[in-house]
Design a protein around this nucleic acid. Sequence first.
DNA 1: ATTTATGCAAATCGTTTGCAAACCT
DNA 2: AGGTTTGCAAACGATTTGCATAAAT
Lengths: 146, 146
Amino acid sequence: MSADLLHDDVASLLRTGDHRYTTGRRRIISTLNEAGAPVTILRILELDTGLAQSSVYRNLAILEEVGAVVRIVTHDDHAHYELAEALTDHHHHHLICTHCGVVTDFQLAPDTESTLDKAFARVGKRADFQIDGHRLDLLGSCAECA
Amino acid sequence: MSADLLHDDVASLLRTGDHRYTTGRRRIISTLNEAGAPVTILRILELDTGLAQSSVYRNLAILEEVGAVVRIVTHDDHAHYELAEALTDHHHHHLICTHCGVVTDFQLAPDTESTLDKAFARVGKRADFQIDGHRLDLLGSCAECA
DNA sequence: ATTTATGCAAATCGTTTGCAAACCT
DNA sequence: AGGTTTGCAAACGATTTGCATAAAT
């Protein structure tokens, strides 16, 4: 997707939540878009030194709230952030390296996804649990750490 | 599995890592076993008031290291712990309520699991990533919170 | 007897928050 | 002008750690 369309989408999500699309927020979105993989807040601050740490924290919270970004919780304790699937049209899961903490995206074949979705629906019904989403992570060692 | 066999297994895992199976560790394992669902450290301390908080943290770290327990990271920031699958012979995944933070276990049909495992193997090969395990969580609202 | 584990309290570190100044509309 | 956002620095809270004592082998 073009960067302009991306920013339009984010602006619209923010407006719905009565928030403004400020320069700082636009820069965070651009950084996430250019990173192409989930990044930590520390990394965002390194990639764009013009942002205050507290603003990055606050803005990511707001962007998550309006559905523009997703926070990924891994075992090492630095949250990772990436653009939400609604903005990238790109349903995916994560490969998490348990050694260096790097997170990368991967996709499953569409028929595997639909098998899973059906199985999840059955589980939700049986457990009386309303399912809003799923999280599928593969844990192991990346090429560098193996 | 009987509690005695469980403790034997844990003792053996600990010995392999040059650790002792102390009273405190035995009590933590019993608490996890009786809880039957993933619990937070705060909950462990409530269930067994005879343990020092720092010892619970330290012992869970060691028990995780030797493969006796698993730490589950959710979005609310209290880690949950449960007995490792190696001890329970009970491969499962988690339902995580995003409102109250409660975590419960569920299982997939064996054929769904094997479809998944094959798909994961393909992903790992293509991404040059050595897969050690996976984590599948369904996020949503439990019966109480819905 | 020697090594390992415990309890307490203090330290650590990612994240959150209060407040006054800067910004957008 | 009126409300929102920002940067700074201080506060927070889950987890970790130092150290002297107690327990395990």
